[in-house]
Structures are given as C-alpha cells and as structure tokens.
Design a protein around this nucleic acid. Sequence first.
RNA 1: GUGGUCGUAGCUCAGUUGGUUAGAGCGAUAGAUUGUGGAUCUAUAGGUCGUGGGUUCAAGCCCCAUCUUCCACCCCA
Length: 458
Amino acid sequence: MAAQKPSIPKGTRDFSPLEMVRRNYIFDTIRQVFQVFGYQPIETPAMENLSTLMGKYGEEGDKLLFKILNSGNYLDGLPEAESGMRDAASRIQYLTKHIAEKGLRYDLTVPFARFVVQHQNELIFPFKRYQIQPVWRADRPQKGRYREFFQCDVDVIGSNSLLNEVELTQIIDAVFTKLGINVLIRMNNRKVLAGIAEAIGAPERLTDITVAMDKLDKISLELVNEELIQRGVTYEAVQKLQPILNLEGKIKLKFDTLTDFFKDSETGRKGLEEMRTVLQHMKNIGLHNKFDFDIKLARGLSYYTGTILEVKAQDVSMGSICGGGRYDDLTGIFGLPGMSGVGISFGADRICDVMNESKLFPEEIQASTKAMFVNFGTDEEKHCLKLLAGLRQAGIPSELYPDSAKLKKQMEYANRKNIPYVILVGKDEIDTGKLMLKDMRSGEQKLCTPDEVINILS
RNA sequence: GUGGUCGUAGCUCAGUUGGUUAGAGCGAUAGAUUGUGGAUCUAUAGGUCGUGGGUUCAAGCCCCAUCUUCCACCCCA
C-alpha cells in the first residue's frame, strides 16, 4: 500500500509543545479571572442537535454550521424525486433533514441557553457560568480566522441588573491587563440602534441600518449611504440618519445628541439610559483599558437585545478578540421565557496571535524539565531512580534519560530541551553518596548531597 | 458563498526563452571527542517539484481541474 501524505482539514491546526504552553498560559489566565469573579465551569458536547443550532445565528450563520452525517444506510427509504423536489435546493433541504440531525457547535452561548433550560431546576439563579471549549465554523480561513477555534465564555443568566454588564467589563479589563494587551472596549446598545431606526421612521430596516453603519470604519460615508439605499432604506430616512453617522467625539456629546434624537422613541431613551448607567459605573471603578460608546458598533448575532460590546487590540491589526452582549430571550425558544442573560466570549486563538505578534509571552512560562539524570547503565539507573523519586516528591520536574546512550547524545538532549540542570551519578558518586550537579547555562558543576540538590532546584 | 494568491528536501528559499543527473543555507544523522552539551571541521542521508489530467521529441517551468496556504469581500472570535 502506497503511503499517503497525511494532512489535516482546512482551517484546523496541530499545536506543538511550545504553542501549547502558550495557549495554556492564556487559558489559565482567563480561567483564573473567571473564577475570582465567582463563575462556575460547565462543559457541553461538541455536537448538538441541528434543531438546537439552526436559525439562531441569522441566515449567514446557518450556512456556516458543520453538519454531521448520520451513521447507517441513510439513503435507504428515501422517496424518489417527486413534485416539489425538482430543484436542487429543495432536494438538498430534504436530504439534509434526513441524513444529518447533528451539528458541531457554532458558539458556546446557544448551547449554554439549551443547558440552562434543561437543567433549570438544578441551577442556582442568577447563574454565573464559564465555559472554555472549541467551536467550529465552516468559514473560509484567513488571518485570525479558523474553522476550529476556542472560545472562553462567561455569562450571567437570570438577572436583569446592569451590574452584570459592568462586571463583564471588569473581567475584560482584568484579563487583558494580565496578558499585557492594550485594548479598546467599544460598547453600544441594541435599543439605541432600534431607537435610531425608529427615529428615522424605518424600524423594520433595523438590521440593514446597523450592518451598513458598522461599515463606517471601513468605507466612506457616501458608500454607506449608497448601501443603505440599496438595502431598501428610503432617501428621506437616510437623510435623517446623517447627524448620527457624523456623530464623533466625547461621550457626553453623543448622549446629548441622542437624547434630542430620541424625543419620540422610548426604546431609544431606554437604551441610552442603560448605556449611561453602565458607563458611569465603569468610570467610577476605573479600568486600565480604554472604553468608548460607539454608536456604529452593531454585531451580527441576532439574539442580542441590549448592551453589546466588542474588544480590539490597539497595537495589532486583528479582528475583535472578545465580544458579547445581552440577550433577553435566548432560552425562550427552548421553552423558558423571561430569562435574561448577558455574556462575553474571548477568542483564545486570536489572543494568541496578537500575543505572538507583539511578543507578549513571558520567557519563564516554558515549563519543562528542570533536571535530568544522565543514564550510565543498569547499576546507576537503579540508584538514580531513587534519587529521581526524591526530586519529584519535592515537586521538581525531573527525568532520567531512558537509555544508556552516549554521554554526548544525552547532553545534547538536555540542551535541546532547555533543561537547565543535568545530574551525573556514576560509580564514584554512588560510592561517596554524592551527585554531580551541572548547570547547563554556565557549564559549572559541583558535587552535592541529595538534599543540597533539592535545595538548589526548589 | 464571490474574487485573487501561494505550493520545490524536516524548515527558509534558488532554479534562465521548456532542454542531460533539480541546488543552497539551516536542521537531522554519524564521526573528529570511550564521564560532559552549545562553537568548529568532515562525511552521510533526505525530493513522484501539492495532487490528477493535458500540450510537447522533452514539463519544476505552459494549459485545465482539484486540494492546501494567505488575502479581500461577506461575516465573525
């Protein structure tokens, strides 16, 4: 049989020990912050029933779901093509329903909502949970975009209090301060966006308006206006929108302008009030990182209803590395109405990319073996095994080279693995009960007792 | 999903208008050195030129398809 060239699916990656150490550093940091803020861990399966996932992420989202083929002879018993199944689209739809009932999770928020509904009687509300697991999206890979990536989610469900929003911003601030990434937290509120749509007399065009506004950072005002018209917003409404599109500057100015703008929109006023409360608290607490009220921030996920936020690294060009918001009725579709939640998601892979680009990983996280015993042969092995157990008991990561190979080879191994100390115990050392401890950096070596070695290495 | 882009040794890359046996550096392995790694020197191994078709006397190079990489759009972490 000819050997085939091995490969992994598009958009997925292997991680080397060095990369894993770095990734774990991020996961550990984030997890630690989550725990300090009183959140509890859960996990959910990699796959969900397709019915749980479909329709929760908007039209685009459905297309990006990875579907899992049923096992068995799923093609048996399918009816022949009949009327209404002539075109490819309806055939695919029919087939899909019958051959795929499961899908890989697209995010952690929807599975969480499902989890809350299923376990509502066991949970203590407000329920504060965190969840660090991979998610999958059938997107085209590019910079900072993978088909398999880790999200680190924190959510509070069962509380309307805006203090939760404030707490989440503190978590964001704490995580990125610890990791050493300068970020900008952009915040907005869906009610503000709804209010704007209402105030210009186009409430039914909310999504179109927000999607277009979101592009103001990338394309010119003229093009945004063009897109608005194209998306079916009337010329008159676009005219009314202009003062909002031009709104830049101090937070206070935004509030003043919008207060005036929302004379006739109760939704808008409500959103504005929420923003005011959250921002005031944030200002009081004093965060390390910058934050802003950004009216242009939209966020596509359709389930958000209140506060929305997005975090970007300041010094590196990369998509958002954290995002989230409040969803008032995500559990409603699963049969538990009136349960408001708010949460955010850290993109561990993008954070890792940012930290690599800015060289933010500390040197000392390369946790590996601290000391290696050279293997001189069967007698020495036996002796070293005991000493090795002593070092490990003392919590010193250590190992014994498994083969009685040439000394050069063993030393090279230690050198390449960046092991800082090598311990040589041969006939002489066994007789005197001492160990030869060699510092691989300086090259110096000296005879020590086992206790002295433990002292030096601890 | 739309448009573009990349692919030659483990890695980074040369390779002329299509022309004999596809090269370099780094790395790897062995030795110079039988209880001492990093530096140096020597030798050795390593390739179906992403894959599959086609054009040609002749293809790493030209054409088509396909996979992968990266990028823009869309969307997002």
